[in-house]
Simulated scan of single mutants.
Amino acid sequence: MPAKDIYHETVKKALIKDGWVITHEPLPLKWGRKDLYVDLGAEKLLLAEKIGRKIAVEVKSFVSPSEIEDLKNALGSYLLYSDVLEQIEPDRELYLAIRKAVYFDLFEESIGQLLLQHHHVRILVFDQHHEEVVQWIP
């Protein structure tokens, strides 16, 4: 079992405040002989549609000295989990959870915009101080 990110509990609380039910902590994925774990699995009932929406959330702190190294690691995890989820649970959407400051420092810049456009990375932006979801980037 992988270690929890330092913002794991913060994102969990933010999702609950946003109306999500945490269903997995972590969400296990098995592909071949490999066991993978996405930090959180969650569901939200959409009353108008009478169906649930399911997500998987990978939490990344971006606290190392190199934000580009953190970005490479986060993108690698995201792409791996996204490919596996597409095969075994295609109705579950994967999100990368990052702090508001990281979003503005990286994803509002040209490098982040390139990644969002080219790789279709879904992002959940959270405020770590208020433990709230600030923005969903589909």
Rank of each mutant, 00 (worst) to 15 (best):
Tyr37Ser: 05
Phe126Gln: 04
Ile68Val: 10
Asp5His: 02
Val59Leu: 01
Phe126Trp: 05
Leu80Val: 12
Leu47Phe: 00
Leu115Pro: 12
Val133Ile: 14
Gln135Pro: 02
Glu9Ser: 15
Gln135Gly: 02
Glu131Thr: 09
Pro26Thr: 02
Ala97Leu: 13
Ser61His: 04
Asp70Pro: 04
Thr10Glu: 13
Gly112Pro: 14
Arg92Ile: 11
Leu114Ile: 12
Arg53Thr: 05
Leu27Asn: 03
Asn73Phe: 00
Asp39Leu: 04
Ala56Phe: 01
Gly32Leu: 10
Gly41His: 02
Gly41Leu: 01
Thr10His: 10
Glu131Tyr: 06
Leu29Trp: 04
Arg99Met: 15
Ile6Thr: 09
Ser77Lys: 08
Leu46Lys: 01
Ser82His: 08
Tyr81Ser: 02
Phe107Met: 10
Val84Ser: 01
Arg33Gln: 12
Gly76Asp: 06
Leu115Arg: 09
Pro2Phe: 00
Glu9Gln: 15
Leu116Ile: 15
Leu116Pro: 15
Met1Cys: 11
Val11Ala: 11
Leu96Glu: 09
Tyr7Asn: 15
Ser61Arg: 06
Glu109Arg: 14
Leu80Gly: 00
Leu85Val: 08
Glu131Asn: 11
Asp18Ala: 14
Asp83Gln: 10
Gly19Leu: 09
Val133Lys: 08
Tyr95Cys: 08
Val125Lys: 07
Ser82Val: 01
Lys54Gln: 03
Leu85Gln: 06
His119Asn: 07
Gln87Trp: 00
Lys72His: 00
Met1Phe: 08
Ser77Phe: 00
Lys60Ile: 02
Arg99Lys: 15
Tyr95Pro: 07
Pro26His: 03
Val134Phe: 00
Gly41Met: 04
Ala101Gln: 15
Tyr95His: 05
Leu114Cys: 10
Ala74Leu: 07
Glu108Arg: 13
Glu109Ala: 13
Pro138Leu: 12
Val59Pro: 02
Trp20Glu: 07
Leu47Trp: 00
Ala42Ile: 06
Leu45Gln: 05
His119Ser: 04
Thr10Trp: 04
Ile88His: 01
Asp91Leu: 09
Glu108Met: 13
Ile16Gly: 04
Lys4Asp: 04
Ala101Thr: 15
Val84Arg: 01
Arg99Ser: 15
Ile137Pro: 07
Ile111Ala: 12
Ile22Val: 14
His24Trp: 04
Trp20Pro: 08
Leu85Asn: 08
Lys72Thr: 01
Lys50Trp: 02
Lys60Glu: 09
Ile22Asn: 09
Asp18Lys: 12
His119Gln: 06
Ala74Ile: 05
Glu109Met: 13
Arg53Gln: 10
Glu131Ser: 13
Leu15Val: 11
Pro65Leu: 10
Leu79Trp: 00
Leu36Lys: 10
Asp127Ala: 12
